Amino acid sequence: MSANEDKLLAALAAALLAHPRGTLKEIAEAAGVSKATLHRFCGTRENLKNMLLTHGAAIIERIIFHPALKEGPVRPAFEQLLLSHLAHSEVMAYVAFNWSPDSPFVGDHSWLHYTEALDAFFLRGQKEGVFAVELSAAELTEMFGSAVFGLFDAQRRGRIAPARLPSIIRHFFASTPASDSAY
């Protein structure tokens, strides 16, 4: 996929998130392209949705197969994981908000691969003392996903500045929980 197509898909993902029931004309305008360009690019709304989900699956695959996630120092790998999500925030948010348990596959890829890769990464980080051991790796994966995708939505709604996202998530994961008696 070309850089221009990647940018267009990001803009279209943001437009669909902002105007989920918008017409193709409204989506095109929100993405900064003409309706004719949008029609040539994807043809139909359903095809656009499928293109975004397939593109999102390819992004997810690149994230989970990045070598840093499986080996090497955990802190730089976490940074890479975070920056990879942030670099594709519009498409990742579109995929997250349009996936449902009734359709577990995004393109030809299962979300299971994503969660398994993150579980393994967080477990490795726990073993190396980087992440809290009071939480399971699965809980850390769910917290990461919830934090990232929740903050994408907050950014989209104007509640959080885009430049603050990385530091918010870093801070969230740098903190370890206090004992249960503190609650």
Rank of each mutant, 00 (worst) to 15 (best):
E46N: 13
E116H: 11
G145R: 08
F65M: 01
S110H: 09
F121R: 06
V106Y: 00
S181C: 02
F122P: 09
E71C: 03
D108P: 04
P20M: 00
A178G: 11
H85N: 15
I169H: 04
E142K: 13
D102N: 10
R75T: 15
P20V: 01
G107N: 07
L112F: 09
I169T: 07
A182F: 14
L112N: 12
A120V: 08
H19F: 09
E128I: 05
S167L: 12
T23N: 06
L86M: 04
G125P: 04
S175G: 05
H55P: 00
H66K: 11
L151H: 08
I64L: 03
G56C: 11
G22M: 10
H39S: 15
G158M: 06
L53D: 07
L69W: 03
L140Y: 04
G56K: 09
P67T: 06
A178V: 05
R40S: 04
V91P: 08
F172Q: 15
T54H: 11
E71W: 01
L8N: 07
R124G: 10
T37V: 12
H39V: 14
A18Y: 00
E90A: 15
A77L: 01
L38W: 03
A31C: 09
T115Q: 14
F105Q: 13
F122N: 07
A15E: 02
A36Y: 04
A58F: 02
K25M: 07
H171T: 15
L48T: 13
A3G: 04
I168W: 01
P73R: 13
A10M: 02
V33Y: 02
A15I: 10
L81G: 09
A161F: 06
E29V: 10
P20A: 02
Q155F: 00
A28V: 10
G158E: 03
S2L: 07
S136A: 05
E79Q: 12
C42A: 15
L9Y: 07
I60A: 08
S181K: 07
T23Y: 05
F105A: 12
G22Y: 05
Y183I: 04
E61H: 15
L118V: 09
P177V: 01
T44V: 10
E71I: 05
A3V: 12
S2K: 13
K127W: 03
P104Q: 08
R21V: 02
K25N: 11
P104L: 10
V33K: 07
L8P: 07
H109V: 11
H85I: 01
Y183N: 02
V106Q: 05
P104R: 08
R40C: 00
Q155H: 04
L69D: 01
E139D: 10
E61K: 12
E116D: 14
K70E: 07
D180F: 11
V148Y: 02
A182M: 08
A18W: 00
H88L: 04
A87S: 14
G158P: 09
G56I: 09
R124P: 14
A120Y: 01
H113G: 08
T37R: 14
V95P: 01
K70G: 14
P73G: 04
R45V: 12
G56V: 10
A137D: 07
M1F: 07
L81E: 06
D180I: 12
L81K: 06
H39F: 13
E26P: 05
E134I: 00
G129S: 08
E26G: 11
E26N: 08
E26R: 14
A57S: 14
E61D: 15
L86R: 06
